[in-house]
Structure formats: structure tokens, C-alpha cells
Write a protein that binds this DNA or RNA. Structure first.
Lengths: 206, 206
DNA sequence: GTCTATAACGTGATAGAC
DNA sequence: GTCTATCACGTTATAGAC
């Protein structure tokens, strides 16, 4: 397979076999968590096997289940959206649209963010994953953004700006729309930023 | 399970057992296709079994594979986005944003459109599905829309309007964002429509 | 008692024999 | 076209090591 991202042989990162009992157990659990995070984010839920996670962590497959209950629970426990949107949301209000677009655009190579989002969307047939996803998006994006808006329909507008953001994330990370990448990032940021700005600070004009 | 949409017992729709040879074979194939379309659109790829598809079509499970090669190929062959966007795209240009938003919003109860889109997105870990999805979206939305735009950056703008559309589809059909439904459809259509209009007929002002 | 490893079960998709 | 075998999967039962 071969991943570009990091250590070619992260196996046996499991634990110092010299350790015993609770110490080693914690290490094993962490090794499983790390392995799962990597694999889920790069391959998704369905394509990643429990045996594969275990092998990469250097432990027995049964341990994965014993420690986390099920593959689904492990997925839910590890796949959490990283929340570093504060800078994009908290700057000057009249350029927030562009900052948001630029932020999404710049995350492209980062597997932690883009891979996690894609994995969650693709696993969203589970009601639990959908719930997790909605909560995370609300906490990280909708709520902070709504807090900054002024005027009418604040809630709906915040929600809709986030809908635009997730649309961009989907295009870049889920369906991987290549045209948009070559289509000059600058234009994307400027134009999509303006479209979001329309809902952040609405113009009276029409 | 119980589906709200249609015939409670569509089983044995397979074929008239009196028929022979090529005739019956075509009927069987169609019955499998119908069954698969229904089930994939309501339950998604992973949750739908070959046995289940076969039972609903009234045929042997092995026939499903024999006729379509694999479950994945059957999925690819049946899940195609319905394309009835013409009205929304072809009306007066200065209200296209609202028409697009309204069209998406009104599709909500229709499983054929919403379920198919959700199923495709969730199966988009397959490179083939991603390709299929991009082609369909381009053919149904990006190309017709770009054809109607004027001014600079037509291609990018068309692409970005479609990004907004898919964002709305994701929110309504994939993550199933409930707040937006109660959040008064009228406001959603008006506001999101305006945001799309921003890219369809850009204002010079700022 | 607690953590780990072996082996086995049930179910899924699919391939091959008839 | 139908039946049965195969193989990989998630998961569990159970026994071993400290």
C-alpha cells in the first residue's frame, strides 16, 4: 500500500514488552488508537480491517475489540474533527468569508483534517456517526460563527455559511474535485469567500 | 423494515415463470436492478446485502453476482443521479439562485434523488464511485450552469455554485441537519439562494 | 484479578461444480 | 440457473501468563 504521510514501519510501536500490567495496557491502547486514527483517516471505515489495525499496532486483533468494544466504537472514539478554526472565525468580520475559504483550501494536504472529515462523511450511514458529526460541526463552526453575526436570521445564516464550508470540504476532500485545484486557488478563495461573505454581512442591495 | 415509498410486497416481481430463455433472463435482470435501486437508496451500500436484494427480487443470490459481476458493479450500474434540474437552471438568470435552492429543498422527501446522492457520497471511498459522481454532477449541473453564465471566471464560478448546491444536499440528505428544516424553509431558500446568486450574477459593488 | 493470545463461530460476498 | 464451497471479516469463548 504505502502511505506518504509518515513512518514506514510504525509497527511494534505497541509497547515495551518488558513492561507489565496496567502500564503496558495503557501503551497498547494508545498504540491501537494511533494505528486506527492513521488507517481510518487514509482508507476510511469499511476498507480498514480490525486485523490491519492490530498488525500496525503490533498487537493481537482480539485486543482491539477487548479494549474498545467494537470496530465502530473505536472509529467513533478516534475520529474527531480537529478544531483550529478560531483564527478564521475571530478576525475582522468583513473578511471572514475569505479567511474561511482560505483555511479550508490550505488544509488540503493535511490528512488529519481532511481524511477525518471524509471518513466521517462516508461512515454517516450510522445514526451515531451522523450525530457525532452534527455536534462537532455545531461546536466548532456554527456556534462560534453565529456568535459573531449581527442582524436578522443569525441562526439560519450561521448554519448556511457552514453549509457552504462543508460543501467546499466535500468537493476538496470527499469527491476530490480536481478541476477546482488547478482552477487557481486564488480565484476560488476570492469568489467563494465573497459568496460566504454575502451571508456573514448581507448587502441590502439587490 | 417497512418502506413508506411504494409496493409493500414487491417480491416475486421477478418474472413470469412461464417465460423461457432470454425473455425471462431480461426480466430477472430488471427485477434485480429495481430491487437493488430501492435498497441501496434507502439503506446504503454497506447495509444492503446481496441476499436481501435477491430475496426482494425473488431470485437466487448467486444470480445477482452472475448477472452483474459483483455487488459493487451492481451498485455502480444502478445508482445514477436523476437529472431533472433543467427547470431550475433554465429560467430567468437573476432568480436562478433561489430556484436552485428551492429545487433541492423540495426534493427532500423523494428517496430516488436524496437517497441516491447520499448512497453515492457514502460509497465514495471507491475511486470508481468518485469518478462516476464527478461525471454525473458535471454533466447535470456544472456544464449546463456554466453555459448560462456571463463575465469572468465562468468555469470556476459554475463549479463553485455547484459546490454550494452539493453542500446543501449534504446538509439535508447526508448529515440530515434537522435544525435547517425547522429553521423555516423560506428563509433558507431566500438566503442561500442569494448566496448562490452572488456567483451567478456577481455584483460589482462592495 | 487483570491483561493477552489462541482458536473458533457466524455471516458476508463470491467462485466453481453440477 | 441452482447449490455448495471458500475465504475474509468482526466478534466471542476460553485458556494462559503474570
Amino acid at each position: 500500500m504505502g502511505f506518504v504521510t509518515d513512518a514506514p514501519d510504525a509497527k511494534a510501536a505497541a509497547a515495551d514488552p518488558a513492561k507489565r500490567g496496567r502500564d503496558r495496557s495503557a501503551d497498547v491502547k494508545q498504540a491501537i488508537r494511533d494505528s486506527a486514527t492513521q488507517l481510518f483517516a487514509t482508507q476510511g471505515f469499511a476498507a480498514t480491517g480490525v486485523r490491519e489495525i492490530a498488525e500496525r499496532a503490533g498487537v493481537d486483533p482480539a485486543l482491539v475489540i477487548r479494549h474498545f468494544g467494537s470496530k465502530a466504537a473505536l472509529f467513533l472514539g478516534t475520529m474527531t474533527l480537529p478544531g483550529s478554526w478560531s483564527h478564521a472565525i475571530e478576525g475582522p468580520l468583513d473578511e471572514t468569508g475569505e479567511r474561511l475559504a482560505a483555511f479550508v483550501f490550505d488544509q488540503r494536504p493535511r490528512v488529519a483534517a481532511s481524511g477525518t472529515y471524509a471518513a466521517l462523511i462516508r461512515a454517516s450511514d450510522s445514526a451515531e456517526v451522523r450525530h457525532e458529526l452534527r455536534m462537532a460541526v455545531h461546536r466548532l463552526l456554527v456556534a462560534p460563527l453565529r456568535h459573531r453575526l449581527e442582524g436578522d436570521d443569525r441562526s439560519v445564516r450561521a448554519q448556511l455559511v457552514v453549509t457552504q464550508i462543508t460543501g467546499l470540504m466535500s468537493a476538496l476532500w470527499v469527491t476530490e474535485d480536481a478541476e477546482m485545484l488547478i482552477g487557481s486557488g486564488d480565484a476560488v478563495i476570492r469568489l467563494y469567500g465573497a459568496a460566504m461573505q454575502q451571508l456573514i454581512t448581507p448587502l441590502q442591495a439587490r
